[in-house]
Nucleic acid binder design. Structure first.
Lengths: 193, 193
DNA sequence: ATTTAACATGTAAATAATTACATGTATAAT
DNA sequence: ATTATACATGTAATTATTTACATGTTAAAT
C-alpha cells in the first residue's frame, strides 16, 4: 500500500480504451481482478483525483434517454506517467496475502476433526475459480498460439495463464496437504486401536 | 481492510508462545510473513488494543540491565476468539494482489525492448526468494516425513511448502512467458529482414 | 574504546481501502 | 404492467496500513 497502485491500474485500463467508473469496476471482476482490485467507492474518488491531476479527462456519453454516463480518457500526461511507472521496479517484493494460509499456520488450534473440512472447502472454492478462469481463457484465446497474438492481447494472455497456473498450483498443494492429513488420521487411529 | 486479520495473526502467534511486539515483527519476516505481514507501528498499536479487549495480557521481562521487554500472553478469552475465527469461512476469496502481474497486463504500453529485462528482473527476485524459503525448509524439516511431525510443527510445514510451491510456480510462468517473448522477437526480426 | 548493527518501543500524520448509506435509470424476465 | 436485475454514480464514516518521526539499550565487530 501507499504507492497509489489504483491510480496506475486505472491509467492502464484507460490506456486501452475510454471507460466509465462502472466499466472499471467491472474490469476488476475479470482477469485483472485476480491481481488487483478496488471497490466502486474508491474508484469514483480516484477518478476525480486523476481528473484534477490532469492525467485523465471526463466527458458525457448518453446511455438511454436520461442516463449520463461519465466517460474517462487518458491524457498525454497520464500516458507518460503510466509508461514511466510500468518501467519502475518495486524496491522489495510485497507480501502476497492469503488468509487461508494464515489459518493453516495456526493449525494446532483447529480441532483435528475440522481440519479436513476446511481444506476441502478451500479446494471447492479454488476449483470453482479455476473453472471460471479456464472458461475465460478459452473464450478469449481458445487454441490460439501466443506467438501470433497481437501485442494488445498479449498482456491479457500472460495474466490469464498466470492466474490459471496459480490456482492449479494452489489446488495441487491443497490435495497434497489433504493426503498428509488423511494419512496422519489413519496412522493415529491405527495406533489407538 | 476491515476484518481485523492482524488481530487474529497476533492471537495465533501468541497461542504458540509468549512474545514481544518486536518478536511478532520478526515473525513476519519468516515463513508466515509470506502470507500475512504488518509493520511494527501497526503491531504495537494492535497489541495495546488487544490488551484493552482482554484478549492478551502484558508483563515485563528484563533483557539486560535496563531494557524492559514487554511480553504478551494470550488469555483464555483470546484463545476462544482465535479458535472461533479459525473455523470461520471467508464469504468470498479475496484478490491475491500482485503488482508485477498488473504491470504485465499493461504490456502494450511497455517498450518491447524493456519487456524482457522486466521479466528477467522478476525472475531474479523470485529465485532469491525461493532459495531463502528452501533454506528455511531444510533448516526446519530437512528430510522429515510430515506424517511423523508434531501437530505444533505441521502448520509451519504446510505454510512453507505452500510458499515454496507458489514461488516455483511463479518461476515456471516467468520462464514460459520469457520463451514466448523471445520467440516473438525472433519471428519479428525474421519478418523484417 | 568506539562504532555498527541488532534489539526494542512508541506516536503522528497521511494514505489506502472497506463498509454503509444513498439515489436513480435501463433492460430483461415474468 | 410489474418486478428483478444490471447499469450507473456518488458521499460519509470507519478501519487498515504505511511512512515518517522519535528515542533508547545491548551485543558484536573493529
Amino acid at each position: 500500500m501507499g504507492r497509489r497502485i489504483l491510480k496506475y491500474a486505472i491509467l492502464g485500463l484507460l490506456s486501452k480504451e475510454d471507460m466509465s467508473g462502472y466499466d472499471i469496476t467491472s474490469e476488476f471482476k475479470q482477469a485483472i481482478g485476480q491481481f488487483w482490485s478496488a471497490k466502486h467507492s474508491q474508484i469514483y474518488v480516484e477518478l476525480k483525483k486523476l481528473v484534477s491531476e490532469e492525467l485523465i479527462s471526463q466527458y458525457i456519453q448518453m446511455a438511454g434517454v436520461k442516463l449520463e454516463k461519465k466517460m474517462y480518457r487518458i491524457t498525454p500526461k497520464g500516458k507518460k506517467e503510466l509508461q514511466s511507472w510500468l518501467l519502475k521496479i518495486d524496491e522489495q517484493l510485497e507480501t502476497e496475502k492469503d488468509v487461508f494460509a494464515l489459518r493453516v499456520y495456526f493449525l494446532k488450534d483447529i480441532p483435528s476433526e475440522e481440519v479436513l473440512w476446511l481444506f476441502f472447502n478451500q479446494l471447492k472454492r479454488k476449483s470453482e475459480k479455476l473453472s471460471f478462469l479456464k472458461e475465460q481463457f478459452s473464450l478469449h484465446f481458445g487454441e490460439k498460439d501466443p506467438i501470433n497474438l497481437d501485442v494488445e492481447e498479449l498482456g491479457h494472455y500472460f495474466v490469464l495463464t498466470k492466474a490459471i497456473s496459480r490456482e492449479e498450483n494452489y489446488i495441487i498443494w491443497l490435495n497434497k496437504s489433504i493426503e498428509i492429513i488423511k494419512k496422519r488420521i489413519a496412522d493415529k487411529s491405527f495406533g489407538e486401536n
